[in-house]
């Protein structure tokens, strides 16, 4: 069973972090980042060609991470592979010891390093969740044909508590969980009030009893970084936090403090089972955040 699943089952407040593979074949790059997170979190998301920029495959980087004793959550997007390649990669990933998969649509390739490429989207992210769940529960391929030794992944999906229209996003969350998502990682949270309201609706629908919710925390390094975060669709940053970053003596320290206080308050919200820390381009801050937040995993 996946270590992350075990931790969540045991009721331990869990922590996942994020590791972006390099735009090269440099294994040491991945190993080093993985080592820095060892013993600090329950699992680490390994992104799949994020922002459609070609990077080391998430399977390979997940494997390297695993070999450093850190459990990966392999991200898989629907952008680049058809159902044949996806299922084949899933079988391979499981054979290599990967146990967690996060199913995503993937950023459209127009943003990436190869905007000229063909756009695949043979299946969508909810259908991918369903396919993983069918492999596990019905022991079958997407075509319904039986599989002898099916992969039994701990299945994740993403949700954005701040995206509009709210109602539609909620329907989608319902569907993801109905399709078989067992854990949900959220978009970065800055606006606690809105997030609390969202969790209230999650609880009212009983979704927190069907899937574990890991709340996203983004650690900002500078005023520029928080300003960039503010531009990401679906991220809303209260003015007060922007001001705090702008007037801080050390933006780095302030960014960490903001993250720490968010973590503190989020960890008290009912139905939240853990946090997912993102520090894009500032991974080195993550160990300190975890240490200082007293969230250090017991594993």
């Amino acid at each position: 069973m996946s270590g992350l699943q075990e931790a969540l089952l045991s009721g331990a407040f869990s922590v996942s972090a994020e590791l972006g593979p390099p735009m090269s074949a440099d294994a040491e790059f991945v190993r080093k980042k993985a080592r820095a997170l060892k013993g600090l979190c329950n699992a680490v998301n390994i992104t799949d060609n994020q922002t459609a920029i070609v990077r080391m495959s998430s399977i390979a980087a997940s494997c390297l991470t695993l070999s450093e004793g850190v459990e990966p959550i392999m991200q898989m997007t629907c952008r680049d592979r058809n159902r044949i390649a996806m299922q084949s990669d899933l079988l391979g990933a499981y054979a290599l010891g990967i146990r967690n998969v996060l199913c995503l649509s993937g950023d459209h390739q127009v943003f990436g390093s190869h905007p000229e490429s063909k756009n695949v989207y043979d299946i969508d992210s909810i259908q991918l969740v369903r396919a993983l769940s069918d492999m596990k529960k019905k022991k079958c391929f997407i075509n319904g044909k039986p599989m002898k030794f099916p992969p039994e992944f701990f299945i994740g999906a993403a949700a954005n508590p701040f995206a509009d229209p709210y109602e539609l996003q909620m329907i989608r969350l319902h569907k993801k969980i109905e399709a078989g998502a067992e854990f949900i990682q959220t978009q970065a949270i800055y606006d606690l009030e809105k997030f609390e309201k969202w969790m209230e609706d999650v609880r009212a629908a009983g979704l927190h009893t069907k899937a574990y919710f890991l709340a996203g925390i983004l650690v900002n390094k500078s005023v520029k970084s928080i300003e960039m975060s503010a531009q990401v669709p679906g991220i809303e940053i209260p003015q007060e936090l922007m001001n705090r970053m702008r007037s801080a003596q050390s933006a780095e320290e302030e960014g960490k403090r903001i993250a720490l206080s968010l973590i503190e308050r989020i960890s008290k919200i009912q139905g939240v089972s853990g946090i997912h820390i993102m520090a894009v381009g500032w991974e080195s801050a993550v160990p300190e955040i975890i240490e200082r937040s007293t969230l250090k995993s017991k594993s």
């Binding site: 995503l104 649509s105 950023d107 459209h108 989207y121 969508d124 992210s125 909810i126 259908q127 993403a158 954005n160 995206a163 539609l168 996003q169 329907i171 989608r172 569907k175 978009q187 669709p233 679906g234």
Partner: peptide, 8 residues
Amino acid sequence: NFNGPCGG
């Protein structure tokens, strides 16, 4: 997508 909007 057949099942609703993406995160973008």
